[in-house]
Design a binder for these strands. Sequence first.
RNA 1: GCCCUCGUAGCUCAGCUGGAUAGAGCAAUGGACUUCUAAUCCAUCGGUCGCAUGUUCGAAUCAUGCCGAGGGCGCCA
Length: 593
Amino acid sequence: MITSIGNNGRVMPTPSSTDPLLILSSTLQTAFEAVAGRAGIDPVIRPSEHADAQANGALALAKELGQSPRQVADAVLAQCAGLTDICSSIEVAGPGFLNLVFNNDFLAGLLKQVSDDSRLGIGKVTKRKVVIDYSAPNVAKEMHVGHLRTTVIGDSLVRMLTFVGHDVIRENHIGDWGTPFGMLIEHLLDLGETKAAEHLSLGDLDGFYKQARAKFDGDEAFQDRARSRVVLLQGGDDETRRLWKLLVNLSTQHFNAVYELLGVLLTDNDLMGESAYNDLLPQVITRLDKLGLLQQSDGADVVFPPGYTNREGDPLPLIVQKGQGGFNYATSDLACVIDRIDRLNADLLLYVVGAPQAQHLSMVFDVARMAGWLNEPNEAVHVAFGNVLGSDRKMMKSRSGDPLKFIDLVEEAVTRADESIASKNPNLPEAERKVIAQMVGIGAVKYADLSTDRVRDYVFDWERMLSFDGNTGPYLQYAHARICSIFRRAGIERESVRNITPNLVEPQERELAIKLLAFNAAVIDTIDKYSPHRLCTYIYELATTFTAFYEHCPVLKAEDENIRQSRLALCDLTARVLNQGLALLGIETPEQM
RNA sequence: GCCCUCGUAGCUCAGCUGGAUAGAGCAAUGGACUUCUAAUCCAUCGGUCGCAUGUUCGAAUCAUGCCGAGGGCGCCA
């Protein structure tokens, strides 16, 4: 099954789609075009509160045709005689809307198609080579809540992009280079390698960093040592490189432990730290110079991309080589663009980086375009996210006060989940409960982060994150667990009901069917905007629609065997979509909780 | 001073490719459990969609200007 995306990023309907709204859209388009007497009319199909769907196209077309919207709607309706296999009812309503009610057999047939499809109706898209830059913790620094966002959002985008058929390259651009390493290496030497290794392997990266920083700030002799150590490091001195590598390895071990605990896909193979681009940096300058883009400003080498100004209203430069001759992050970000496009042949570069970097990245992309390194159809996108705020609504900065350590956060979430499960389901053996608590606790943390619009600031709240009510991970997992429980209790294999075409009678059954068939659209929309919260909203709506069905439509106690079989099929498909949807967010679904 | 993002119910958030009466959850109130796991469901309560003007048949959604919050603005990354 192929769902193609047009160059406007929107989904174009294809006959093989299992999305009833798409099918309706392409079918009604013909009717609208017949009335308009020209091609390219959008019927403007939307979900509706007054019917299963509504077509708003008549209102827009009325002016062009010099008729009233209701006249246009009536004319379109007259063209829809052949639609009876899709819609059981079409009527004109209000100022000129077409209210459409789907034929039950049509919906049931689509459900069967989705059920027969291991991809649950999610089509593959035209393949692109995508490089996604996310997580990016700093060596010898603790991962904190800020890293949580980029890591969790990036991981979920990786899963979705891969699933729809893109070739995805993960890059973890760790901060493993630059001036702080002078002081870090000198501090390592002061402590002694063995003691430093013990210190760092305990995961107390911040303590190590702070000690080094304190010495640097208060001790001039140490400052001198640190500065000359940086020179040695950048000059490629063997012993210095060895010590540097030691620091990097100890840190990445810690990162890997966190990634594994979180169930994030990043591994050592994805490491592409700043140091990896070191050899490319001089080239960036020479190439910009050859292109005539390089200018001198206050002793630094800079490029002036148009459209940026500083406080005084003067053109704002992107500094690519400092007055002292050193490179900075602009240089290395430009090297990244070159490397990702030239060496990796990527055509889409995603940067899951905090919103405060917007101007910097925008300038880097502009300079890359000016230099001809980034051309259509290749594109770079800043997948920006907002700050993590405390309950006081102030930014949670690692500097000020006590930073919330990543690992402590996850452990507390798991502990709380464990306590909840123990109290709600005391018969569950402890070993099983521990496994489930891990899924629930970590799922809660991830879902809390993913379920709000990423560009907005995010209020970090223990209570809400771990609450088992409302739009939370545990609620969704619970809906899934309840379905599994039905099958477990009845001793029925899930696979055994997959040859059944459901019979949709009750309103809750129809609602559930329509929601299930919207999965593909939700995933495509989520990817189109790089906004996981859209998928979260869909899954939450699916779960609430399911629980309404669950309350109103008895499954195992259904009045006859056909209804029972039909409802079992609906349950199974719902569980599969919940499971797949949450999997695309990087969240696991326990079978009981 | 300039630029960017955000402003929706008491709280936390959806909705923003313009469509009918703006939706959830939490909190508050009232119901439904010898259960297909009540970690749930149903109902009630709660909103000048920051303000104003404009575009349009139609604006929470688009444009412009204000107000408020946060962020960014030359050698940290």
